[in-house]
Design a protein around this nucleic acid. Sequence first.
DNA 1: CGCCTTTGACCAGCGC
DNA 2: GCGCTGGTCAAAGGCG
Length: 214
Amino acid sequence: MEEERGLLTPIYDHLQISFSAINHHQEMGFVHFEDHPSQVLSFLPPPIITAAKPTAATNNGSLGFDQNGLPNIPSWNNNNNDLQVGALDPKDVNDENCSNDASNSWWRSCNSLEKSKVKIRRKLREPRFCFQTRSDVDVLDDGYKWRKYGQKVVKNSLHPRSYYRCTQSNCRVKKRVERLSEDNRMVITTYEGRHNHSPCDDTNSSDQDCFTSF
DNA sequence: CGCCTTTGACCAGCGC
DNA sequence: GCGCTGGTCAAAGGCG
């Protein structure tokens, strides 16, 4: 019983969102956002694809995480954001975004004495979730507070990638945000790790709703 | 004053 | 071994 499914919080009344979380040993999850039966957001297949559970969405406008710190849904504060999402060509989202990324090893600096175990640990690093949305804003409101710690121009991309870290102490969750060079309205967000706190720890008002909604 | 973003430098992994 | 690339660090500056 390894599967750990994220609970869905309704967001958009015109959207259907299916979300498949990952088990503790996977690199990342697999998330679909269904705006329309013919428009399904797809992601790179994770090493193991778990069954998705389509859930009708109604709106409250924020990205939720379950108690395990797993993202439930994408959301945007900007009303102009268009959550129509198109198919994501795997060529456009390399493994750097969505699957095994050998160079991404946030833990590598955690303990320099563990260098000899790098290859072992790499297989056990934090779970990651990647999804693609169409929006004018880069950073979605997921109820958590993020601090930008880096920006990097990546190869074959016209847009720089931004690196964010959860500002909560003892929480090492990170996320990366970048826009597709083919469509600068398409934003790829990759979460890495799990929050060890609720969004309410960071924001003390309306975020309560998103957390208690599941 | 504290928190944030920016940005160049540095480091480590990977492919050749 | 070397070069390329992505990820992180940390100093500097900005903003409320």
